[in-house]
Amino acid sequence: MEYVSKIFLILLSSILVNNFIMSRFLGICPFLGVSKRVSTAVGMGAAVTFVIAMASLITYLAHYFILVPLKIEYMQTLAFILIIAALVQFVEMVIQKTSPSLYQALGVYLPLITTNCAVLGVAILNIEEKYDLLQTLVNGIGGALGFTLAIVLFAGIRERLESADIPEPFKGFPIAMITAGLMSVAFLGFQGLIK
């Protein structure tokens, strides 16, 4: 029972309390880059979710079955980046084949998931927190859902801001930055949720 509640805590904490964008400030690049439309934000969220979930699984296996037995844990970053890059390439091919319009909308941000620090962040945090396989997966998927939640909410706000009467110097990115800051403050409210 304690185990189940821990899993639940990890899920809640990775989605809300330690939201990758709003609390850890990882993965800001696509957060600002592809958040103009809710539909592309959802697509980006889905792609990142897939990559993070797969990356969590494979990096876990790679860490405990390759790096640890060979005592080369210091190659962690390199190995993880290799895995993430391969995964992103794969996702890119699949998206280009299955949904050209999403591929167009994501543009350069799709290959940039490779260097998205949220992905690498999840993978490394999983190891550092000494999670087991299930916890790793839950943390990964939770983190990715948190990312999707933040980017979709943000895109929704930006869509509405587009028709708002914003003073000229604040149009575009400045107001987006302010919005992101306010959202981050709002997410701070989850901080006391888990003790």
């Binding site: 790679a62 390759i66 790096l67 060979l70 005592k71 080369i72 190659m75 390199l78 190995a79 290799l82 895995i83 391969a86 390439q89 794969f90 091919m93």
Partner: peptide
């Protein structure tokens, strides 16, 4: 040897898969 072989192997594996 270990790092070179293991990471090289991983790279090769992913390359083939891709």
């Amino acid at each position: 040897l270990f790092p070179v072989l293991s990471l090289g192997g991983l790279g090769f594996l992913f390359g083939a898969g891709l």
